[in-house]
Amino acid sequence: MIDVNVEIDLDLLGIDEKKSINILKSTLEKELISKAKINLIFAKDELLNNLKIEYFQKDHLTDVIAFRINNYTDTEVEGEIYISLERAIDNAKEYDEEISKELARLIIHGTLHLLNYKDSTEEEKLIMTKLENKYLKDFDWNKIF
């Protein structure tokens, strides 16, 4: 049973909540996870920045933060994913991508983090990016924003 709860900052309305949930669920299914309880939060830079300072002692803008609430060894995945819509829009402009695709990538990226994927080394990063690209090809992220 996968339970996804989405929160969108009311100043950032316009995100297709249902498609976001679908992308998250599909990612989990591809990763063979059947039990999960996840909060997906679309927020402003301000909130993400504060979280970053509080939990990682780093003060810079960030596009996605994922918290695994229970242990990585548990079969059920419990966690929270924070995504900054403002970062997503900026990134999309920078890489000349669609905002929807960028948002979908952030959702997948955050979900993968919850599943203990890391991106601290170049090697790890490459693995994650490959996976993201693969999933993006399969999922429907059209007009997510």
Binding site: I15, D16, E17, K18, K19
Partner: peptide, 17 residues
């Protein structure tokens, strides 16, 4: 309808706001 892409909980949150 903007609500088509939203879950009922989110829609209700917007409306109540």
């Amino acid at each position: 309808n903007k609500h088509d892409s939203l879950t009922p909980a989110m829609s209700s949150k917007i409306i109540r706001k």
